[in-house]
Computed example of a mutant assay.
Amino acid sequence: MSDANQLFILGTMRWGAWGANLSASAAADLLSQSVSCGLTTFDLADIYGGYTTEALFGQALRLSGIPRERLHLISKCGIVLAGQNSPAAVKNYDLSSQYIHASVMRSLEQLGTDYLDTLLIHRPSPLMDLHEMAETFRELRDFGLVRQFGVSNFDVYAFEQLNRLFPLVTNQVELSLTQPAALFDNTLLQLRTLGLTPQIWSPLGDYLTRADSPTHERIRLVLDRLVRKYDADAAQLLIAWVRHRQSQAQVILGSTNIDRIRAMVQSVAVVLEDSDWYALLEASRGFEVA
């Protein structure tokens, strides 16, 4: 598990009210066990748990006794929820300098730390001012509040333009066998060409939570064969598919079950043959490559 810190990130979206609703002690135990199996990078966001998960994580960190400097903490901002600890009348995006600064300060307070390792803009906004965002990043960096910056769910052009104004370290993108678009819209190609590390969210897609479509049935038929061939479970194969020839990618694991987390980390041992990767792609799309 020595490579887990480089290859995997533990997501926290389901730690709070949006998922398992962990107690502080349960979150501390999960944090400690995750670190013990090599996971030291954690993905957070201001809105997770209806603006409550970062406070939960901060409590867990204090209870765990793990030194802050052992961890790499990522937070995201820019989405404004309506009616959940928020005065907003409608869900919206706010990428203004004032909002980003306020979100960072709130995250630092909730987490009980004086810096974030990485700050990501959660979603692009049609109203965003890239020059203002770049200047905000410079200010947060110069104040020592954030060490590095990236984005999440940005398309190739928006990433390129912001990266020209301020150096970014990642684009956090959705990629799975049931949502493979990032393989074909040049998002991953762009990051690979720039020598940057993609962060992949939802690597399992909805395959394990839904089984009532022709797509899922086609995937199941191929996976059943590959489970036997590679002596791996379905989740491990799905993650291996996402990471295939994406050696720089970090995969975000969303489970709160430590046994499942350990099993998914073991997916690094699964190296798919190209023909099996394409067989799964064909099952997902329902047609062979041209």
Rank of each mutant, 00 (worst) to 15 (best):
M1N: 14
D3A: 11
F8T: 06
G11C: 01
M13S: 06
G16I: 06
W18V: 06
W18G: 04
L22S: 03
S23W: 04
A24P: 11
A24L: 00
A27C: 11
A28F: 04
D29G: 04
L31Q: 10
Q33V: 01
Q33D: 15
V35N: 01
V35T: 10
C37E: 07
G38A: 07
G38K: 09
T40P: 02
F42W: 08
A45F: 08
A45M: 06
A45D: 04
G50A: 15
T52I: 03
T53S: 11
F57Q: 04
A60S: 14
A60H: 15
A60Y: 07
R62Q: 14
L63Q: 10
S64P: 06
G65M: 08
L71Q: 06
H72Q: 05
S75E: 02
C77V: 10
I79G: 01
V80R: 15
A82E: 11
G83L: 04
P87S: 09
A88I: 04
V90D: 13
K91F: 14
L95F: 03
Q98A: 15
H101G: 08
S103D: 06
S107A: 13
L111I: 11
L111V: 15
G112D: 15
G112Y: 15
T113Q: 06
L116F: 07
L116G: 03
D117V: 00
L119H: 09
L120S: 13
S125I: 03
P126D: 07
E132V: 12
E132P: 08
M133W: 02
E135A: 11
R138E: 12
R138C: 03
E139R: 02
L140N: 06
F143P: 03
F143R: 07
L145V: 05
F149T: 03
V151R: 13
N153R: 09
F154G: 01
D155A: 14
A158T: 14
Q161T: 01
Q161S: 11
N163M: 07
F166Y: 09
L168E: 14
V169Y: 10
T170Y: 09
T170H: 05
N171W: 02
T178Y: 08
P180F: 03
A181D: 14
A182L: 05
L183I: 02
L183K: 07
T187R: 15
Q190G: 12
Q190S: 13
L191V: 02
L191G: 09
R192G: 00
L196D: 11
T197S: 14
P198E: 09
Q199K: 01
T209Q: 12
D212M: 13
P214D: 13
R218H: 12
I219E: 08
R220Y: 08
R220G: 05
V222L: 13
V222C: 11
L223S: 05
D224W: 09
L226R: 04
L226S: 04
K229F: 05
K229H: 07
A232C: 00
Q236S: 03
W241L: 00
W241I: 01
R245M: 01
Q248E: 07
Q248L: 02
V251D: 09
G254W: 14
S255Q: 11
T256V: 02
T256R: 00
I258L: 12
D259I: 01
R262T: 02
R262H: 03
R262K: 06
M264K: 09
A269R: 08
V270R: 02
V270C: 05
V271L: 05
D274L: 00
Y278Q: 13
E282L: 04
E282V: 03
S284P: 08
R285N: 03
E288K: 06
A290M: 15
